[in-house]
C-alpha cells in the first residue's frame, strides 16, 4: 500500500499549490527547491487560480494499469493563467469537443483508486469552463 507519496503532495493535488520564486518572480508548478529559471532557492507557496487553456491533448484508448476503469479519457497539457504548463486529465467533456485553446478550469476529481480496499487518490483535473447565466447576462449588458 502506497500512502505517504500521495499524502506528501496533497496541497499540490488538492489546491494546485505551487511556488513563486522570490528572486525572479517565476510562478512554479509543481513546487521545487530550486527555481529552474534563475537557479535561486524557491520556497514561497503560491496558489494557482485554476484557470487555463488547452495547450495540447490526446485521448488515451489503452490505459495503463490502474486507470482501465476510466478509459478512454483525454489528457492534456494545460497552460495556466499564471504561466506554467501542467499535465492533467480533462473531464466532463467528450473527446470530440476538445480543441487547442479551449478555456478550462480546475476541478478536484478521483485520479485513481489503489484497489477496492486501498486509498482513493484525488487531484486536479480540468473541465470546460462552466457556462454561467450571470456571465451571459453580463455579456448582454
Amino acid at each position: 500500500m502506497r500512502l505517504a507519496p500521495h499524502w506528501r503532495v496533497r496541497a499540490q493535488r488538492l489546491q494546485l499549490r505551487g511556488e513563486v520564486c522570490q528572486c525572479c518572480g517565476e510562478r512554479l508548478f509543481p513546487p521545487r527547491d530550486v527555481c529552474p529559471a534563475c537557479h535561486q532557492p524557491a520556497d514561497k507557496p503560491f496558489a494557482f487560480c485554476g484557470e487555463g487553456t488547452v495547450y495540447s491533448f490526446s485521448t488515451v484508448y489503452e490505459a495503463p494499469k490502474g486507470y482501465e476503469r476510466f478509459g478512454p479519457y483525454t489528457i492534456a497539457l494545460v497552460r495556466l493563467k499564471e504561466g506554467p504548463l501542467v499535465t492533467a486529465q480533462l473531464t466532463d467533456i467528450d473527446p470530440a469537443d476538445v480543441r487547442i485553446g479551449l478555456p478550462v478550469e480546475m476541478v478536484t476529481r478521483v485520479l485513481r483508486e489503489e484497489g477496492e480496499d486501498g486509498m482513493v487518490i484525488y487531484g486536479y483535473k480540468f473541465r470546460p469552463v462552466l457556462e454561467r447565466e450571470a456571465a451571459r447576462e453580463e455579456a448582454r449588458a
Binding site: L14, Q89, T91, D92, V107, T108, R109, V110, L111, V120
Partner: peptide
C-alpha cells in the same frame, strides 16, 4: 456522477 466523481469531489466543488 461521472466515473471520477463521488461524494467527496462533489462536496469539494
Amino acid at each position: 456522477p461521472g466515473l471520477d466523481e463521488d461524494t467527496t469531489t462533489m462536496a469539494i466543488e
